[in-house]
């Protein structure tokens, strides 16, 4: 019994230490960015993290928008309210699916890549040797990735929502024959800039923060073995997915409140 308690206590302390290390890493990495010489590192990371995720994001958004249009249509056409397909898709994408699905895809595509890259740098002593050369890897490696992730995810989510709405229009208006004016005017009437688009972007900012933080930290803190890197990569995807879905619930509760 006492042994069990001791083990549990040790695990808990280990977790606290991990959170502590993650916070320290976060703090000292962000301590430092505003230097123009780092701009190039940052741009390179936007390319690696953002641009390279773009195809995945656009393709997923296209099919999700199309599927949503089909599903809303089959339900709404029974009430003769098929024009509401536009509003429905726009609301769902802007408020929920855009931020959440983008964050999940981002965790799988860019997050795991960040973890693996930093993990491997750690395992092959590249981080240590950088430290020994008097270059702080937190500033050189970690900070640009954190910032790039923080900027890229919201941008990708905006593109995701736009592409999704556009493809739902393609399916709804051009294929299923919903009246175009009604389809778009419905959105215009209902969707609001801050309430729907703005708060959606706020959500993605929170997700961006948490997903890149998890990805970078898991890489930085991984065991320097091939097994360690693979489990760190897995953890990145799992932790970020769970964090995104859980946070989404609370963010929705807080932002659209009144329940």
């Amino acid at each position: 019994m006492i042994r069990l308690l001791r083990i549990l206590g040790q695990i808990a302390l280990g977790r606290f230490a991990q959170i502590g290390r993650a916070s320290i890493m976060w703090g000292s990495a962000l301590n430092s960015l505003p230097k123009t010489s780092d701009a190039r590192l940052f741009i390179d990371q936007i390319y690696v993290i953002g641009v390279k995720s773009l195809i995945l994001i656009v393709m997923s958004a296209f099919s999700i928008g199309a599927v949503l249009a089909l599903q809303f249509y089959t339900q709404l056409v029974r009430f003769g309210a098929e024009e509401a397909v536009g509003v429905g898709v726009a609301m769902v994408l802007l408020r929920e699916l855009g931020p959440v699905v983008t964050a999940l895809l981002f965790a799988g595509r860019a997050g795991s890549a960040i973890t693996a890259e930093i993990g491997l740098m750690n395992a092959t002593d590249q981080l240590s040797s950088m430290e020994m050369m008097g270059v702080d890897p937190l500033k050189r490696i970690v900070a640009p990735r954190l910032w790039a992730g923080f900027f890229c995810l919201p941008m990708l989510a905006i593109i995701f929502s736009a592409v999704g709405i556009w493809s739902s229009g393609l399916v709804g208006v051009d294929w299923l024959g919903i009246e175009s004016v009604g389809f778009w005017a419905g959105m215009l009437d209902t969707v609001e800039l801050w309430e729907d688009i703005g708060k959606g972007i706020v959500k993605t900012l929170v997700f961006a923060l948490i997903v890149t933080w998890i990805a970078v930290f898991q890489g930085y803190d991984s065991e320097p073995t091939s097994e360690g890197i693979s489990s760190a990569t897995t953890r990145t995807v799992i932790f970020s997915s769970v964090a995104v879905l859980t946070l989404d619930f609370f963010l929705t509760l807080v932002m659209y409140g009144d329940f």
């Binding site: 092959t124 002593d125 240590s128 430290e131 020994m132 008097g134 702080d136």
Partner: peptide
């Protein structure tokens, strides 16, 4: 980090 600028360390794994 200032002190380390005056040191070089050659890692066993080269760590390029």
């Amino acid at each position: 980090f200032e002190l380390r600028k005056k040191m070089g360390l050659l890692f066993q794994s080269s760590a390029l």
